[in-house]
Simulated assay, not measured.
Amino acid sequence: MKIWKDIVLSPNDTIREAMRTLDKGSLRIALVCDAEQRLLGTVTDGDTRRALLADANMQDPVSKIMNTSPISVSNGCSRERRLQLMNQHDLTAIPILDSSNRVISLETLHQAMQPEQRDNPVFIMAGGFGTRLQPLTDHCPKPMLRVGDKPMLEHVINQFISYGFHDFYISTHYLPEVIRSHFGDGKDWNVSIQYVYEDCPLGTGGAIGLLPKNLPKLPLIMMNGDVLTKLDYARLLRHHENQKFDATVCVREDEHRVPFGVIETEEELITSMVEKPTYRYKINTGIYVLNPDIVGSVQPSQRIDMPTLLEHHRGNNKRIGTYTSYDYWLDIGQMKDYQKAQKDINIHFKLPNGSDNE
């Protein structure tokens, strides 16, 4: 942050000048640097109080009271690590240094607790008819059915916002005006929301071809608008990038326990006998990360499902991978799922202070 330059002291500045700087900066810390902005130490309110109680003179140089071994981090240090250090050492701010020990920034605790802004576009599919939830969906798109005190689509968007995403696209078809009138252009959520409209359903992947051609050249996250999840989208995106995948399918582990003995045969002869086996599967959560070339491969008005699209690219030697999520996830496809969502919402979508995920 630029404000750090206002709280820099030289080692010859007085304790009185340090106190004035601390008062002016309101950060409870001042940085003591040499002429090249190399960090020599820090001074806090506590340092000045202890110095005066020890009969220091207000005209004494600040070098006499500064902490010569302050906690600092390099420019490459992750936000999670910076936040951990501040909490561990009860700091309100931490200096960020380059390889020559020069101060290049100062991160406050407030800043570190804010989500890192992510410019990756988010594409939410919200055009389905929701026939299995009739009559609730007779006059309302399924993603706009209320779960708790807000539509499920708003929960979806809020979860993305909590991880710093701000560039949203929503695919509509059934009763699109209900979605548009609620979210508008997204300004009430401090995000951008644009819409694409399917004249006729194009399959789970076809709406990708309706997206603007000037999307950021970054991986796009795509998901169904009738899914409630507490998925860590930052971790999903990091996994996609670290593995150098062209597309990532978010999956969950599921199992099916057969309550009987299972017998396999070949030409009437038993080849194996397993008593009450358990079969484990990876199921598709309806959440994907797609690189720009995958997104750009879908043509306008092309009807295609996501498995077909990904199989096509896998056949062309693209790296199509998976990310296994253990976070809360619920696909609201049937009435029993919708009823479960009403029970789960107060457990999984409430913050410790009792407020919701806004």
Rank of each mutant, 00 (worst) to 15 (best):
D356N: 14
M66Q: 04
M144N: 06
A112E: 01
Q111I: 00
S74G: 15
L215H: 13
G76R: 13
G206P: 07
N57L: 12
L231Y: 05
H173T: 08
M125G: 10
P176G: 02
S100H: 14
I3N: 09
G206Y: 08
S63A: 07
V227K: 00
L52P: 04
D327W: 04
D199F: 02
A247F: 09
P292A: 06
S181D: 13
N214W: 09
R28S: 15
K213S: 15
S301H: 15
N346L: 00
I345G: 00
I347V: 02
P300L: 02
N12K: 14
L202G: 00
V298H: 00
P201C: 03
I294Y: 04
N190D: 15
G41E: 12
A112Y: 00
P277L: 02
M306W: 06
D60I: 08
A112G: 03
D305T: 01
L91Y: 07
S69P: 01
L309I: 02
L145W: 03
F260C: 11
T92K: 13
V32L: 05
I304L: 02
N317E: 12
L9D: 08
K340Y: 10
P11S: 03
E358W: 06
R81W: 06
G261W: 07
V73L: 02
T42I: 15
I320T: 13
E267R: 14
S355V: 05
Q114L: 15
M66P: 06
L85S: 05
Q134S: 14
R238I: 08
L153V: 01
L145R: 01
I96R: 10
A51G: 03
N190W: 07
E311K: 14
W329T: 09
A54Y: 03
Y288C: 01
T248L: 05
F349E: 00
C140G: 06
S74H: 12
L211Y: 08
H182T: 09
L27C: 05
R49W: 09
Y281I: 06
T44K: 10
P135V: 09
S181I: 08
V249D: 00
D47P: 01
P307N: 01
T48N: 04
Q37G: 11
H173G: 04
I94P: 02
R132H: 14
P212Q: 03
R132N: 15
A56E: 14
Y163F: 15
I221Y: 03
K350F: 00
K213A: 14
D199R: 14
G203K: 11
G296S: 15
G354T: 05
H312D: 08
R79I: 06
A207G: 05
D6Y: 11
K64I: 07
R82K: 13
K318V: 07
E255K: 14
N242C: 08
V227A: 01
Y197E: 06
N75K: 13
V122T: 10
V73S: 10
L215R: 13
L290N: 07
N284E: 02
R82F: 07
I304P: 04
R238T: 13
H240E: 02
R238C: 09
R79T: 10
G130S: 09
S99I: 13
P141N: 04
G296K: 15
I221P: 06
E198C: 03
L31S: 07
P219G: 06
G209V: 12
E36F: 08
E107Y: 03
I7Y: 10
E358T: 08
I96C: 12
I65N: 04
E177T: 11
